[in-house]
Structures are given as C-alpha cells and as structure tokens.
C-alpha cells in the first residue's frame, strides 16, 4: 500500500447526504476481476446522461473544480460493501474524502486502499463547503502525523481523529494482511485453545 503522510490540494464539494456506493460505482461496472479502470466509471450515472453525453450540471464535469480532496455530505459510502467504490475514487485521483460521517464498511475499505476518510463535525463541514463555494481555488493541507486539516492562507484549522492503528498503517504504507501474517502463531494457538475448551 502507498504511504500517506501529507497532502495539499484544492477540493471538490459534493454537498449531498447519504451518497451510497451504488452511485459511486453502479453494479453493472463490478464485473472486472482486477482493481484497474474503475475511476472511469466513478459516479457514472451522475456524470453522464443515459445517452452517454456528459451531464454539465455535475460538478466533476466542471473543469474549474479540480483536486484530490472530495468533500461530501453526511453518511458517505452507505449501502453495498463493494470495495470497488474505494477503487473508483482512488482511480479517479481522490486521496482524501472529508465528511461528517462515513458508513462503516466504506471507511474500512477506504483506509485499506490508502484513502483517508476524514471526519469533521457538521459545522466544520459546512465551513469547508462555504470556503470552496466562495473561492474555488481554496487549498487545504492535510497532515496525518499531526492529525490536522488546515485551510491554506486562512485561520481555519481543524484537528481530526483517526484510529491509532490505521494511522500507523497509513503512515508506513502497511496493511492488515502484513500484520495478520506476522501473528500466525498466535492465531493457531487461539484455535488450539478453543478446541481444548
């Protein structure tokens, strides 16, 4: 897994609540057997009309909005457990998703792919949306080590929480498989003890 330490970028706002993984990547694109190419189909049915033409109203089709940070409404990533949603966001180029709430499985999936799901309180989320609305070129800096989200050239600084174990994983570019493989003996011991009971 890639390491994640610091990022400075502009952000793309998507102020909708309960964005489900069926919207992030519709089921008909789940037929691949590898992780590649999902970025093209990110938010497919919002980005494109049914006749295949681009929907100009959708923010990802507005060339003025760029960046590797997505700011989204509450309960982002609800619904299906498909990790393809995380692969699609990553494939498209997002490295951080900011919301006031993430659905449980999505959050794990994001972390397991080196995407930081960054939780802020509703009031701060509102402020972030406002900052981008007022100035599209607003830049944000995310420092995982310090657990700090800052608006560049502004006072706005938000301390965020992140699971201690997952933080170490992200900073070192390690993942759970590496760790679990390293404790194989303990797992076997656990199995033995259970049989004995």
């Amino acid at each position: 897994m890639e390491r994640f330490t610091k990022l400075t970028s502009t952000a793309i706002p998507l102020p909708l609540e309960n964005i489900d993984t069926d919207q992030i990547i519709p089921a008909r694109f789940l037929k691949a057997i590898d992780k590649k190419g999902f970025g093209e189909n990110l938010f497919k049915d919002w980005r494109f009309h049914s006749d295949g033409t681009a929907n100009d109203q959708f923010i990802l089709n507005n060339p003025n909005y760029t960046g590797s940070i997505l700011i989204a409404g509450r309960n982002f990533g609800c619904g299906s457990s498909r990790e393809h949603a995380a692969w699609a966001l990553k494939g498209y180029g997002f490295k951080v998703i900011i919301s006031s709430f993430f659905a449980d499985i999505f959050k794990e999936n994001a972390l397991n792919n080196g995407i930081l799901p960054l939780v802020v309180i509703d009031e701060n989320l509102h402020n972030l949306f406002k900052a981008v609305e007022e100035n599209i070129t607003t830049k944000f800096q995310i420092d995982l080590e310090q657990q700090l989200l800052k608006q560049v050239d502004s006072e706005l600084a938000i301390k965020f929480e992140v699971d201690a174990y997952k933080k170490t994983c992200l900073l070192n570019g390690q993942d759970d498989v590496d760790f679990l493989a390293s404790i194989k003996n303990e797992i076997e011991q656990f199995e033995q003890n259970r049989i004995a009971v």
Binding site: S81, E108, N109, N112, N113, D175, D176, V177, A181
Partner: peptide
C-alpha cells in the same frame, strides 16, 4: 459484510 481487502485478510489468516 466486509470489503475485498478484508476478504484477502480472512483468506490469509
């Protein structure tokens, strides 16, 4: 339910 990375974790351990 779990994601595919976790499917790999359960396969492995």
């Amino acid at each position: 339910g779990i994601g595919t990375s976790q499917v790999a974790q359960v396969f492995a351990s």
